[in-house]
C-alpha cells in the first residue's frame, strides 16, 4: 500500500531544546493514527510539522508525494489538502459559521460562492450544526465551535485530517458530541492523525497507536496490542496513570 505521509529521521529544535528526535513515521491512505504521551513530549509539534506550521531542521517529511522543505513553493497547496483542527478551535470571530466554512474554498480553491455554500451546508449538516450556520462563533458553545472548526476543515475536502487535542479545551459534557463527529469521520474513510488523551476514542477508531515521550516515538503498535500488551515500561506507566 502507498504512503500518504512519510517522515524520515525528523529532528527539530526550539533554540537549543530538541523537541523531536529521529522521528520515523509512515501513514497509509485511510489509516487512523492516535498519538498519545505526556505533555511536552512533542506530539503537537510532530503533527504541526506535517502541515509545516512548524519547520523541522533535519530529516524528510513527504506529504502526498511532495517533500516539505525551506523552498517548497506550493506549501499552500499541501496545506489545502491537509485539514487541521486545533485545541482552541481558532474559528474566525469576525465571520459567521457559514462564512468561516466558505472563505477558504472561495479564495483558495476558487470555487463559485454557490458551490462553496452547498459544500459548507453539507458539512455543517454532517456535524449537526446546520441550524447555527448564520451565527457568529462567539454565540456558540465550545462543543459547537469545535464541530464548526471540523466542518471548516472538511470544506477544503482534505485528504488528511490532523487533530491537535481537539477535546482538551472542552467541558466534559461537550467532549462526546465532538468525538461522535470524529468517529463518524473515521468510519467514512478519512486519513486521520489525532493527538488526544481520549483512550476510549482511540480504542474505537485507531489502527495504530503511537506513544511519545521526550521527543521520541517510544512505542508504535496496533491498537489492540498497545492497550493489552504494551512493550515498554514507560508506556505501561503512562497507561496505568490515564486508564
Amino acid at each position: 500500500m502507498g504512503k500518504i505521509i512519510e517522515l524520515k529521521k525528523v529532528n527539530k529544535w526550539f533554540d537549543k531544546f530538541q523537541v523531536l528526535k529521529d522521528i520515523d513515521l509512515d501513514v497509509a491512505p485511510q489509516e487512523k493514527i492516535v498519538i498519545c504521551g505526556p505533555s511536552g513530549s512533542g506530539k503537537s509539534t510532530l503533527i504541526r510539522c506535517i502541515n509545516r506550521l512548524e519547520e523541522h531542521q533535519e530529516g524528510n517529511i513527504i506529504v502526498d508525494g511532495t517533500e516539505l522543505a525551506e523552498n517548497t513553493k506550493n506549501i499552500e497547496k499541501i496545506r489545502a489538502e491537509v485539514g487541521m483542527v486545533f485545541q482552541q478551535f481558532n474559528l474566525f470571530p469576525h465571520l459567521s459559521i457559514l462564512e468561516n466554512c466558505t472563505l477558504a474554498p472561495i479564495w483558495v480553491k476558487k470555487l463559485p460562492k454557490k458551490e462553496a455554500e452547498d459544500i459548507a451546508m453539507k458539512n455543517l449538516t454532517r456535524v449537526q450544526i446546520d441550524d447555527q450556520a448564520l451565527k457568529f462563533p462567539g454565540q456558540l458553545s465550545g462543543g459547537q465551535q469545535q464541530r464548526a472548526a471540523i466542518a471548516r476543515a472538511l470544506c477544503m475536502e482534505p485528504k488528511i485530517m490532523l487533530f491537535d487535542e481537539p477535546t482538551s479545551a472542552l467541558d466534559p459534557e461537550m467532549i462526546k458530541e465532538v468525538l461522535d463527529v470524529m468517529v463518524d469521520l473515521a468510519k467514512g474513510g478519512m486519513t486521520m492523525i489525532v493527538v488526544t488523551h481520549e483512550m476510549g476514542f482511540a480504542k474505537e477508531v485507531a489502527d495504530y497507536m503511537i506513544f511519545m515521550d521526550e521527543g521520541k516515538i517510544v512505542e508504535r503498535a496496533k491498537t489492540k496490542e498497545f492497550f493489552e500488551n504494551p512493550k515498554s515500561d514507560r508506556t505501561k506507566l503512562f497507561l496505568s496513570q490515564i486508564l
Binding site: A80, V82, M84, F86, N90, L91, P93, H94, K109
Partner: peptide, 29 residues
Amino acid sequence: PKGQYEAARSLGMGYWRMNFLIILPQALK
C-alpha cells in the same frame, strides 16, 4: 492570538490572503 494566523495558514491561505481576509479585518476593528 497566534491561532488565527495558524488557522488561516492551515486552510492553505498565503500571506496576502491571510492578512486581508483574516488578520486585518479583525485587527482594524
